[in-house]
Write a protein that binds this DNA or RNA. Structure first.
Lengths: 244, 244
DNA sequence: GATGCGCGTTGATCTAGGTTATCAAGCGCC
DNA sequence: GGCGCTTGATAACCTAGATCAACGCGCATC
């Protein structure tokens, strides 16, 4: 896969937000080093690492996670193709979390040296990359709101709405649903629930015809009802054209 | 208050992370418009606003919040003097949350026009401002971990540790504690708990000698025990010298 | 074809934290 | 000095979700 097609999903997402010039597209494509694959279940990035590059997700699905000393694991964001999974490490230097491949992933590195040079030479593109990390923050805030204020069913509904919209933006959803190759236990670590309770809530949503999740494939049964249950408002995903 | 002394707490924080040149200090000071005060309990920023400037907190204490349609309120971050409370609005354009003054606040605006110009002319300073928003994201992630994986007492302990370290970095803590002018109900909206349960947990921590909170003043009784209970690791606050 | 195992499903029981209500202390305000 | 309002403190009761324990099914391995 060429660097320019590898970076395509990111450019597509950025182009929904602002004009991206041919020179900028070229500069982005030039960032990516040789791609490699990581099989499902392996780590893309170890927690605490100090990478000299940021990792771009060309294809697949992965999740940021933190471990607690009492054996817990919290997934703090799910990343889809077109996301930099640790762009913030350019500035944080030390990773505050790890990144796990949920499905087989293809990733490509962008060295911090090249990224830093880009911030010197392409201020507008820098703002667009900055926006990527800012949207990560907005997603985290939204998850905090659902964790703190909504019950298990609403939380699950909200997550499914978010994933649908984000995968759709990356051209990875169908009219009826999307692939979600993770276990119910993984999902519990996203929502702060046990695998058992995730199962019960899934059953409930299935029974009410809102959602079907079978063989790693989510089928939306009733989008309106699902969005209402999850109190889903996509503003925070910032998928609209407003130049920066 | 002059612009240069108003921006001082931000420069101090940045200088813990990287070298900030005199020209950069000057450029930062030049960002701030005339300061104004907002009394405790009022909003600095309405949710959904499209401000033409970002708001810098010169002094006081405020919190980002989101409301849910079922009457809930979640505070997603507490901001201290030296923080930009909505730097991300430069890129998000529309606010995804509101900002509430917990104590009387003095704030100063930095127009998006000036901030954009700064990103054109000061790449290194741009990276330092970018880092500010990246640390916000790291704080959100840490809160997600505590919300999803820790019980009420650990969550409260973690929050107190975080606030202590951040206020200390801003020169606003004493050896023994810090001012926390908010109600137990507010704190419940931070932790995703009810006021009643916050009260129970506070009593428990007080009984165990970890913490005393009286008349808006937190006194740390046993830092080691508190940090252990909250599983607090300050890495995510990124308060160490590592040039970007 | 037997064996194991990951994953989903289900039931029984327990508990952290929610809900509701009450009361007292502090405090500005008339 | 009394009045109303906010905040903290507590108690009684209730529920969402955790915990623990099976069990079944698909699927890979031998």
């Amino acid at each position: 896969m060429s660097a320019s097609s590898a970076i395509a999903p990111l450019i597509e997402k950025m182009a929904r937000r602002d004009v991206v010039t041919p020179q900028e597209r070229q500069a982005l494509a030039a960032l990516l080093g040789p791609a490699r694959t990581v099989p499902a279940g392996k780590l893309l990035i170890e927690p605490g690492d100090r990478p000299g590059f940021s990792t771009f997700l060309v294809s697949g699905l992965c999740a940021r996670f933190s471990l607690t000393s009492n054996g817990g694991r919290q997934l703090t964001e799910i990343n889809v193709a077109g996301d930099f999974v640790d762009l913030h490490s350019l500035l944080m230097r030390q990773m505050d979390h790890g990144v796990l491949a949920l499905a087989d992933c293809m990733i490509a590195p962008a060295t911090h040296e090249d990224l830093r040079r880009l911030t010197e030479e392409h201020p507008h593109l820098t703002r667009l990359l900055w926006l990527e990390t800012v949207v990560d923050g907005a997603i985290h805030r939204q998850w905090l709101v659902t964790m703190g204020q909504q019950d298990a069913a609403s939380r699950l509904a909200h997550l499914m709405c978010e994933l649908y919209r984000r995968l759709e933006a990356a051209g990875l959803a169908t009219d009826s649903g999307f692939a979600l190759p993770m276990t119910q236990a993984d999902l519990g670590d996203v929502l702060g629930l046990t695998q058992v309770h995730v199962n019960r809530v899934l059953m409930e949503l299935r029974r009410r015809g809102l959602l079907l999740w079978k063989a790693g494939q989510v089928t939306i049964g009733d989008w309106e009802a699902l969005a209402a249950l999850g109190q889903f408002d996509p503003t925070y995903l910032r998928l609209i054209r407003e130049p920066v």
